[in-house]
């Protein structure tokens, strides 16, 4: 478990919503909501470039630790409002998915183990 606050600090992420005082179990990177619903796990940090309001619902459903929006993307107004309501941390970075995942990996956050079908 790595603290989200540490991650924010070390990777210079911009926090736009939610309480970042929580633990991260592992990471999940995907831009397909159905895929995240199927495969993300509790306390994952989710890396995506999707910005619409549905991401908050997905994060809530899966009890994710937070969402990192990549490549300089900004959340939509509705997304931000909902994220504040639901206390879901949304964090911003200028980096691409590949690079921010790489840096998270270096901080000791790994991917979920998949029970291969």
């Amino acid at each position: 478990m790595v603290n989200l606050k540490d991650i924010v600090q070390k990777l210079d992420l911009k926090v736009v919503s939610g309480d970042i005082n929580r633990e991260v179990s592992a990471g999940y990177a995907s831009d397909l909501l159905s895929d995240v619903i199927a495969n993300a796990q509790k306390d994952n940090i989710w890396i995506t470039l999707q910005t619409h309001v549905n991401i908050v619902a997905v994060a809530n459903l899966q009890e994710l630790a937070g969402i990192i929006l990549v490549n300089g993307r900004q959340p939509e107004q509705a997304t931000l409002k909902k994220a504040e309501q639901e206390n879901i941390p949304i964090l911003l970075t200028e980096l691409s998915t590949f690079e921010i995942v790489g840096k998270l990996y270096e901080l000791g956050i790994h991917g979920n183990k998949m029970s291969s079908a």
Binding site: N39, S96, F98, E99, G102, L104, H110, M114
Partner: peptide, 22 residues
């Protein structure tokens, strides 16, 4: 690969593959 996107990107980055944004 059996790994997730996250695990795959992490491993490649750690081993020195550069990223587009870089």
């Amino acid at each position: 690969t059996k790994f997730t996107t996250f695990e795959s990107c992490g491993r490649l980055y750690k081993n020195g593959l550069k990223s587009c944004s870089y």
